[in-house]
Design a protein around this nucleic acid. Structure first.
Lengths: 195, 195
DNA sequence: CAGCCATGCGTACGATCGTACACATCGTTG
DNA sequence: CAACGATGTGTACGATCGTACGCATGGCTG
């Protein structure tokens, strides 16, 4: 029953290599051969360790989602109060996530798969659940959902936009979305842009 | 100089067929052959009308983005005042967009391409610019950016989530994000979720 | 120490792909 | 009316892919 030539790191390295290749070439360009080469393993190892490509992709994206969620948890675990949590949200958008094009690419690749295949949708759902749980430490459930959606949108737009992602705008947006509307007077917008 | 056997609809049909195939199979599964078959044209027509696959994809996604932006413009053009605009936002999320899985899939496919290739990023940027211009009819520029991001996030999450997309939550979220923070008293959240 | 079998790998097969290119078709022109 | 050239198509080539499968390897057992 003891392991013979068993190398448990091998499987992990393949998964990591898969994420690297996907980040660089996309799911479409990620072939068994490319991943094997990048991981430094023979082609035969692919089908030996993973019965199909889908299994490899599933495990890879599960790992990716968990790694992001870990950072999420960490940030909010460190936040002392609500204002700290708000700060953490802004930091996540502007530092942790935006810096790495890699995360953006992988996120979109995952969402694309999730939009079509239930297996991957489950991964995104679990991810969202973890995010909301982290937010739930500081905000009420309804606010969590709004805030989670806002983070998603700000992240995406900040990454797709040219460059001028204004931190002040993110701060204001987070402040608005986390403050219940009932407590404020109805006030219209400042100056509509005509034309 | 006059057209001989020229059939201008042919090219359009190919583009529409491309979007259909992409929606069904993804960019990865969209081959010249499948698109040709779906469009009812011979394989040779593909390389005749489009020098490369990228050109076809570019035109297809440009058309897709414009069609969505058209609906956007229409909704906000019809809105009479700010409250009408807020209503329009909620409607866009809950009726126009959410109904069609097709739009979600195509949007993600486009974003995935945009995350990697500048050509497609330009398409998304133009799309975002049009969206913000439409929002700018009723809201100030900063609010437009926040609201645009919120719409993006709500749309994505509503589509990836199981089902329970609460309209009331969207209404509240839109109300919060469109009301400047300065006018409200600092008020914490209701009841944090511990555990 | 000999042989067996779990473990892992090299290679080849059939399918599918993008693209090139020779050829068919037919309106136009001289 | 003949033939030319613009317009469109059928087919074949080389590359790449996922996967299957027979063989190498070497630790364990008797």
């Amino acid at each position: 029953m003891a392991s013979r030539r068993f190398d448990p790191e091998r499987r992990d390295r393949i998964i990591d290599a898969a994420l690297d290749v996907i980040a660089a070439q996309g799911v479409a360009g990620a072939s068994h051969r490319k991943i094997a080469e990048h991981a430094g393993v023979p082609l035969g190892s692919m089908t030996y360790h993973f019965v199909s490509m889908d299994e490899l992709l599933t495990e890879a994206f599960r790992r990716f989602a968990n790694s992001i969620a870990d950072r999420f948890d960490q940030q909010f675990g460190e936040a002392a109060d609500v204002d700290g949590a708000r700060q953490a949200v802004v930091d996540l958008i502007h530092l942790d996530l935006l810096d790495s094009q890699r995360d953006l690419v992988l996120t979109h690749e995952l969402y694309t798969l999730a939009a079509r295949k239930p297996v991957f949708r489950q991964i995104t759902r679990d991810w969202m659940a973890r995010s909301r749980r982290a937010l739930g430490l500081h905000f009420d459930p309804e606010t969590c959902r709004m805030l989670d959606a806002l983070i998603e949108g700000l992240f995406i737009h900040a990454a797709l936009d040219t460059e001028p992602h204004d931190r002040a705008t993110a701060v204001e947006a987070v402040a608005r979305i986390t403050t219940p509307i009932k407590t404020r007077p109805a006030r219209e917008t400042k100056e509509p842009n005509l034309t």
